[in-house]
Structure formats: C-alpha cells, structure tokens
Design a protein around this nucleic acid. Sequence first.
DNA 1: TGACTATATATCAAAACGATATATATCAAC
DNA 2: GTTGATATATATCGTTTTGATATATAGTCA
Lengths: 180, 180
Amino acid sequence: MDIKSLCLGALSIGDASGYEIKKMFEEGPFSHFYDAGYGSIYPALNKLLEDDLVTCTEIEQESRPAKKVYSLTDAGLTYLKADLNQKPARDKTRSESIVMMFFGHLLSSSHREEILHSYIDYFRDGCTCLDDLDLSNQPNGRLFVRGLGLAVYEAAAKYLEENKDLLLSDDEERDFGDAA
Amino acid sequence: MDIKSLCLGALSIGDASGYEIKKMFEEGPFSHFYDAGYGSIYPALNKLLEDDLVTCTEIEQESRPAKKVYSLTDAGLTYLKADLNQKPARDKTRSESIVMMFFGHLLSSSHREEILHSYIDYFRDGCTCLDDLDLSNQPNGRLFVRGLGLAVYEAAAKYLEENKDLLLSDDEERDFGDAA
DNA sequence: TGACTATATATCAAAACGATATATATCAAC
DNA sequence: GTTGATATATATCGTTTTGATATATAGTCA
C-alpha cells in the first residue's frame, strides 16, 4: 500500500482534485492515520491516470483557479479492493515532540514547557477536527476509525495534562550515568 | 531533526553499535514514537563520523561477528542539544491497518476480522514491550514518555475491543452514495 | 548436514518528503 | 489603489528515507 492506493481510496468516497485530496490528509478523515503532501499526491495521480485507474476532467471555476477533478475507474476500484485485502505493514510513527520530551533533560525548561503545551493543543485540535467531521450515513468503518482517533487523542491529552509535572520537574544537569 | 539526530540521541544514552541502535527503535525506548531501519541508520552513522560528531571503535567479540561501537563527541552533544531545542515538526503517522478499517466495507469479513485482532495484539504487545523497559534511575523525560506510550496503547486496545462490533457489522454491499 | 535463528554491517533502487515556484482571486488595511 | 495576507490550485525537484537484498559469523535443533 502506497500513496497511490490512498488516492484511490479518497476517490472511492467521491470525485476530487489533488488539492481536495490533500485536505483529506490535512484536516479531513485521514488526518489522524496517514500523511501525504502535494509532492506525493500529484505524481501519484499522474501515475494512476497513466495506468487508467482514474480519469481526469479539467473544471473551470468562477472566482477560483481551474481544477482537475479525478474519478475512479472500474479497474481502479478493483485494484484498490485487492490492495486493501493484503496484509498491512506495521504502523510507522515519527513524533519529534516526543523525541524532545524523551530528551527533556537536554532542553531549556522554557522549551520543555512550550513543547508540552503545544503538544496538548495539538491533540485538542485533533479532537475538534475529528468531532467536526460529518459522517452521517457513512459506512461503519469510518465511524469506527474516527472513534479510535478520538479515543487515542483524548487519552494522550489526558495523560499529558495529568502528568505534566513529571516532565517539567526534570533536572537539567543531574548525572544519569549517560554519555550526555 | 532527522535520523542523524536520533542516532546522536541514542548515543547520548550510551555507546552503541548500529545494530544496537536499531533495536532501540524496534523494541527499545524509541519503539512507540520513531522508526528507523538499517538503511537509514548505517548511512547516518557514517555521515556523523565524517563530521566528527561521533567516534568509532571496532570491537572483536567471542562467538559473534565483530561490531563497530560509536561514541558521542563533545561536538556531537552540542549539535544534539541545539537540534533538540528547535521547533518540532508535526507528528507523522502512517497506519495501513487503520486505512483498511476505514475502508472496511471493501474488505472480506474474514480479512476485516483478521486486521482488527492483529491490531489489538499489536497494541497489547506494545504495552508489554514498554512495561519491560528498565527505566530505573533514568531522567523523568523517559518515564514520562513511556507513560504516554502506555496510555495511548491501552486506550487504543480498549477502544478496539469495546467497539469491535461496529466494525465487524459493516455491510459489504450497501450503497453509501460513494463512487465505490 | 541442513535449516533456522541471532548477531552484525552494508548497499541501492524506488518511494516519499518538503521546500519552492507559479498563478488566480478575495479581503482587509493603510 | 496598492500592498500584504490568505485561500485555492497545480507542479517540480533535490534530499531523505524506505525496504528489500546481500554478505558473513556462530549457535541451536533435528
């Protein structure tokens, strides 16, 4: 599974432009479990078009630049279903905020505090974002996944707030027997 | 912040070989918030060596292949601290399991069930892994971060188990007005 | 002896990232 | 009225990262 498959998935919900697909990753239903930028999405859509897994129509708009709207073909849906029924790869995560908290004793106390509060805000905003999704009359999988995201974000925000003193109390210069 | 910084961070805990650093990402204290494979770690260590941010000693071992043990230099620690005090990038996640659950209505019910149970096991194993870490007499940041990982993994496992019926009940062929 | 697992390092094509460029249009400010 | 900011929209490209593969030593188990 790669960005191409995710684009097919996005188009299985409905026709969309690259810009609109990006928004699904940024603030839409994919935001809490997959990331992709323009640099991945546009090339992916072009490859899908080459392989006839999607079609493309250029649409002129009033008071906005023209956009290219992509649609899933039958072959695209078949490909997507096959890919979705494979064995999933392990989750990949990369959190620089957590890295910084892990090495909190190497941070200035003001930076440590800043990181922590920004991270709490990040989870709170994530909850709002998921709450705002309109999932009425949609497949249960989408509701289920939104619920999972909310549960995880809420648990993270709760932990961070309830235990913030543990992080903030970290000494800057105590000796832990590390090389540092 | 990139893999080079993470390697410096790993070495700030103590001298280590590339293989040992990999284990920190795989089953060690980094496992729940950062990923890196050999293909990133070995080139990173070579670049760090070139820039004199680490030193390297080849160690012969009995009944095992020789290993290259890397140590942080003063310049390396300075670089690490500077990097750690920058603004963190947004979290990046990529979960194929959640993608599959999101598009659960396009999956065979047996695959849907398989995905769900494997994912519950994944979080349960993650909890065990974090529980097994020996963090005695270590900086509070490391305890704090382990606690965060546990809180998140437990919340995820709990949600998945308590709501599994919602996912499993997803119809395969209902019409949701999607392209699919 | 052969198969498997664990330790250990290395490489490389393919994929993805992320920063930048370009263009149109609205809105607010000065 | 024009500067600056924001939103929509597409595209490119050097750098980084991935993930699969190769290579080698050594212990274990059948």
